[in-house]
């Protein structure tokens, strides 16, 4: 059974410069217990997609259908939605300013725990310390009484993960949790996220291919507000079908660090036809005219992509 089903989701932000189409007709399904990596460049709409699920976007027009365990999230009233946040669906943000600078870290985690119904202050604090221990924080009791500015970047991210897991949610949305961390710390955080989410459903939003590969069962690649390729992690790595996915792999350091030419287009003025065709290495004349649909590749079932070239075989 799918824990999260997104159908034809559109997210737009009206701005003075024009309508920013951040997410365009995205369909996505997440199975119970599945971990899905959402990969894309900055501005591809992946974070917006993640926040749209918990309805935390301000000033956005959200259309379509988001179903969480059979509940249509976009139709819930604010109070019902609030009850899902934290205890059913939690978000792990990228860290530097996501913790309140003037409150003790332990108290910020305990606050979440108390919301779930643990009314006793001391018990909540104890559970918060346990949550911090669970993410591998040494001397958790000591650190629970400290403030965010006393934490290192890696420690803050661990605290954010502890906060995200504090209420034992079913679905976790991790929004670029490894951004801005040193390589060594990043490896630890990725390992931690993999270990603590083994029995959870995870939407792992990142631009880091290797992190996604280590954690996720499936990977979805986003470009310009739409999904251009989605499939099992091994499939995507072994046999990337979309030229953008190929480009992402080629831009990895171990693959020679070749950048995709051009810059990702503005989400106000989206290219016609295939959104990637201005930057594509091998466009055909059809690519500029028609918008390719997301179809299953003939060669590998369950592997979907949005490219005319492969569609024709």
């Amino acid at each position: 059974m799918s824990i999260l089903a997104i159908n034809d989701l559109k997210v737009q932000f009206p701005t003075p410069e024009g309508l920013v189409k951040a997410v365009n007709s995205v369909d996505l399904e997440l199975e119970e217990g599945e971990r899905l990596g959402m990969i894309g460049e900055t501005g591809s709409g992946k974070t917006v997609l993640g926040l749209a699920v918990v309805r935390l976007l301000s000033g956005a027009e959200v259309e379509g259908n988001i179903e969480y365990r059979g509940k249509k999230l976009l139709l819930l009233d604010e109070a019902e939605m609030r009850k899902l946040r934290g205890r059913e669906i939690s978000v792990i943000f990228q860290s530097p300013n996501s913790l309140n600078p003037v409150l003790k870290v332990g108290d910020q985690i305990a606050e979440s725990i108390r919301l779930v119904g643990c009314s006793n202050r001391q018990d909540a604090k104890k559970k918060a310390v346990q949550a911090m221990e669970a993410v591998g924080m040494p001397d958790a009791e000591l650190w629970a009484d400290r403030y965010p500015h006393q934490f290192s970047g890696g420690m803050k991210e661990r605290a954010m993960i502890a906060l995200g897991l504090a209420c034992d949610p079913r679905l976790i949305i991790a929004d670029e949790p490894t951004k801005g961390l040193d390589a060594n710390i990043k490896a630890q955080v990725v390992e931690l996220i993999r270990d603590v989410t083994t029995d959870k459903s995870l939407l792992f939003i990142t631009h880091d291919l290797s992190a996604a590969a280590q954690i996720c069962d499936r990977i979805a690649v986003m470009y310009c507000g739409e999904i251009v390729e989605v499939g099992r992690t091994e499939e995507i790595f072994a046999n990337p079908l979309h030229p953008y996915t190929e480009g992402l792999f080629r831009s990895l350091p171990i693959m020679g660090m070749k950048a995709i030419r051009g810059a990702s287009p503005s989400l106000i003025d989206i290219p016609s036809g295939c959104r990637f065709h201005p930057r594509c290495d091998r466009p055909c004349e059809n690519c500029a005219k028609a918008h390719p649909p997301l179809v299953e590749a003939e060669s590998s079932p369950g592997h979907l992509m949005r490219c005319f070239q492969h569609d024709r075989g």
């Binding site: 935390l56 934290g86 300013n97 996501s98 913790l99 600078p101 906060l163």
Partner: peptide, 26 residues
């Protein structure tokens, strides 16, 4: 517009609770 306010919202706190416990002190 601070990120910790977004974090507080993601916890499922009410708006007035966020104002009292998170925004006011800052």
């Amino acid at each position: 517009g601070e990120e910790y306010v977004l974090t507080a919202r993601s916890k499922g706190l009410r708006e007035m609770e966020i104002l009292r416990h998170h925004a006011l002190k800052n």
